[in-house]
Design a protein around this nucleic acid. Structure first.
Length: 258
DNA sequence: ATGGTCGTTGCACGA
């Protein structure tokens, strides 16, 4: 079994005790992290090495930052786009091959508001991700693009459609950008196991949203058919959102048969 | 209808 997980940790410095505790308890073979919010040189490589993991980190500093840790090998690391496109100063994408799966840790831009330049950047970022898949990856092989998409795939993935009317994360262009990844060959693996409405992976820290059940499902493991065929189960570990100093996101897990 | 809480850093801004 290969356990693959993704978690927006919202600062690995602030979250390191919770992350190490969770890694020991849940024993993922591969964990993609987003929003490490730390410079390259301060990534806690030794902490993860002591737990049996190799690490790759694409760090930026106070914002963004993505990482992959693996117990099943970590090779062919690609940080960022490595294409001919415009410079992107934001560290939001990291690739590695782990246990025979081509894994990406992706932190899709938030978008902020539909009339914000950051929303334009979000859509361009998703289009560029599709181009990266077209150029470098094979939809017939095992590929898993994991991360915080900042997009709720369907209305049933948000606690209130009314509350998000006119907001980002639910707009048609954003959802179309996700469907473009599906057209390439990726599938929302969680949905191949669970059909329930109102299951979430993120809850705002404010207003007691977690305890009120006000969240969104925006953290996804998007896998090719070769991943889906091996998948035995998928879960969102909402326990990780409880307790002291949690991230505002819960981890998403997929277990793959050998 | 509004604002609320965290994280960064530095007393504002991003999510």
């Amino acid at each position: 079994m290969l356990r693959l997980a993704t978690w927006n940790v919202n600062s690995l410095k602030a979250r390191l005790p919770r992350v190490t505790e969770w890694v020991v308890e849940m024993a993922p073979d591969v964990l993609c992290m987003q929003e490490t919010k730390m410079k390259q040189e301060v990534f806690p490589t030794e902490v993860f090495a002591d737990l049996g993991y190799e690490s790759a980190h694409f760090g930026q500093g106070q914002w963004n930052g993505v990482a992959i840790i693996s117990k099943v090998g970590l090779t062919d690391v690609v940080a960022g786009w490595e294409d001919d496109g415009p410079d992107d100063p934001e560290a939001r994408l990291l690739w590695a091959t782990c246990g025979g799966v081509r894994v990406a840790s992706a932190y899709v831009p938030n978008g902020r508001a539909l009339d914000n330049d950051h929303y334009t950047y979000k859509l361009a970022w998703m289009a560029r991700l599709r181009e990266a898949l077209d150029r470098r990856e094979d939809p017939a092989s095992a590929v898993a693009v994991c991360g915080d998409y900042n997009i709720a795939p369907e209305d049933r993935d948000v606690w209130s459609v009314e509350a998000f009317a006119g907001a980002t994360h639910v707009s048609e262009p954003e959802r179309a950008s996700l469907r473009s990844l599906e057209a390439w060959g990726l599938v929302d693996v969680y949905r191949t196991f669970h059909d329930e409405d109102k299951v979430f992976s993120w809850w705002d820290y404010r207003g007691g949203d977690f305890h009120q059940g006000r969240g969104m499902r925006i953290d996804l493991i998007m896998g090719t058919a070769a991943v889906v065929e091996r998948a035995q189960d998928s879960m969102i570990d909402r326990n990780a959102r409880k307790g002291q100093q949690p991230s505002d996101h819960a981890p998403v897990i997929v277990d793959l048969a050998d």
